[in-house]
Design a protein around this nucleic acid. Structure first.
Lengths: 122, 122
DNA sequence: CAGGATCCGGGCCGATACTG
DNA sequence: CAGTATCGGCCCGGATCCTG
């Protein structure tokens, strides 16, 4: 988060901008997820990027991290109420994107996109 | 625009991601804008970034460029129906951002943000 | 299992100067 | 007025290896 914004949109994009954060947001609701689980769900992300994005989202108050003192270690990530409220807004944007891809001509959505239900709000 | 997306959201962010595009989107509707006018409205942007973003948005089918063969030259930029439909979705995101800034503690919105009406859909 | 540390390239983005 | 051209910093994001 920055210091000064001239528009709420800047803040929103600051918080979920970049390549990964909105995809992570999808996966953390309604069920909490473990680190490894999340890594499998967010296709293509590296551990470095995942932990980095999670830490930023935690600092921004969107994500809660719950560590259990066990062996082997277990950590669960979930959305805060603020995170949930934001995730709820992304549905229309996702639908717009799908329609856009379609109109722009073609088979740009990969086949398993539907079965992965990445865009279906939980 | 890329080749393959696993989710409509990726496409949406591809199209309005980055620092400037959503701010430009605000300013191109409902009234068309000239280049210089736009440059003044989008505070802080350089000519290079402005023309670069406009070209990308034009290639993505969000923006229409209309050049008039006059001296001195005149060029007007406006939103396509697709661009308008996207802009319409950004309102809630902007409100979320403003509320977020407020809750996160403070005076992060610069004073003239309100008077600039950057977040008020035209 | 859940990370940490390090190296590295590409491109986003800005500054500056110039043009038809 | 509406751009072009060039230079360069920074940091996003990936690859790889390592640890409690």
């Amino acid at each position: 988060m920055r210091a000064v914004y001239s528009c709420g949109l800047e803040a929103t994009f600051d918080v979920i901008g970049g390549k990964w954060k909105c995809l992570i947001l999808w996966r953390l609701h309604p069920d909490a997820r473990r680190f490894g689980e999340l890594k499998r769900l967010v296709t293509g992300i590296t551990e470095k990027m995942l932990i980095q994005q999670l830490r930023e989202m935690e600092a921004d108050g969107l994500v809660r991290r719950q560590a259990y003192p066990e062996i082997p270690p277990r950590v669960e990530y979930s959305l805060t109420p603020m995170g949930i409220s934001l995730k709820e807004l992304l549905g229309p944007l996702c639908e717009w994107g799908s329609k856009y891809i379609e109109q722009m001509g073609g088979q740009h959505l990969c086949e398993d996109a539907e079965t992965q239900t990445q865009c279906v709000p939980g």
